[in-house]
């Protein structure tokens, strides 16, 4: 019992989130129940407006649920944020053009008050982790879009948060770059053992990466299916041609279609 308690990193029970807009209230999340265990790789997939990003932002305490309970590491999301429980990777790399890559990666460390020596150590370590060793002195504009996004992942990893929240981090990149980065994220996950929550639009991306796929649908935003992936943790790119992979992808697509069907 104690073991299962410690395993749950993120726990949502009946989470509701209503935005008050000019056109009246919008239910962004309705009765969301989900448990994310330690070391899991969870993808959130669904059409625009299904609340997947809102749910990720709620975990990060960037939005606040209007009902239900949501805990991160057993704390409220706000407490978790203050204890630096997670690193957040946004869709855009959001690197500061006036800082070098190394300086960008050490930005959160500066803010959190790490010593200069510690900052340098950690920057070296995480740049190596995302295979950007030797690029520390470059400026963001000298790097490709994919490399910039890798730098932003390094920045999210720099302060050793156990949880990595990724909001369509590769959405703006082309498919070839995206494939390579997906492989790298998996490697990174295997090496660091972090709990990753990953928002995406792409079915292959979700199936390829995740141990658990959360299918969501809009109006109101809710979970329609949670799929535990039977794929092994070790995943070469060509696993995407395997029968299991295609079956899971099919189930996700069915889930998306069903969610869409009863909304219209």
């Amino acid at each position: 019992m104690k073991d299962t308690m410690s395993q749950a990193v993120i726990e949502a029970k009946g989470v509701n989130l209503v935005f008050e807009t000019g056109d009246g209230p919008v239910q962004a999340l309705k009765d969301v129940n989900l448990v994310v265990g330690r070391g899991e790789f969870v993808s959130f997939i669904g059409p625009s407006g299904c609340g997947k990003t809102t749910f990720l932002r709620a975990i990060a305490a960037l939005e606040h649920p209007t009902g239900g309970t949501l805990t991160v590491n057993g704390m409220s999301p706000d407490e978790a944020r203050m204890s630096r429980a997670y690193g957040y990777v946004f869709q855009a790399a959001g690197l500061y053009p006036w800082r070098t890559i190394a300086k960008n990666v050490s930005l959160p460390l500066e803010i959190m008050g790490f010593s200069k020596a510690e900052q340098a150590d950690r920057v070296d370590r995480v740049l190596e982790l995302v295979e950007l060793k030797g690029f520390g002195r470059k400026f963001p504009w000298q790097l490709s879009g994919g490399m910039q996004q890798r730098a932003s992942i390094a920045r999210a990893l720099a302060f050793d948060a156990d949880i990595l929240l990724m909001d369509e981090p590769f959405g703006a990149l082309d498919e070839i770059v995206r494939d390579r980065l997906n492989e790298e994220v998996l490697k990174l996950w295997a090496r660091t053992g972090k709990t990753i929550c990953f928002v995406t639009h792409s079915i292959p991306e979700a199936v390829y990466l995740s141990t658990k796929i959360v299918v969501m649908s809009p109006r109101p935003g809710r979970i329609t299916d949670v799929i535990d992936s039977p794929l092994p943790r070790e995943r070469p790119l060509d696993i995407r041609d395997s029968r299991e992979f295609i079956e899971i992808a099919h189930r996700v697509r069915e889930g998306l279609r069903a969610g869409h069907g009863d909304a219209v």
Binding site: R57, A60, R81, R84, Y88, Y96, L107, E110, I111, M112
Partner: peptide
């Protein structure tokens, strides 16, 4: 908003937001 959210996730103070992001 994204840049400000980013700093919020690191629990940056208003002073830090000012010197590190707003001013530059």
């Amino acid at each position: 908003g994204m840049q400000l959210d980013q700093l919020a996730t690191w629990n940056a103070s208003r002073t830090q937001v000012f010197w590190k992001l707003r001013l530059p």
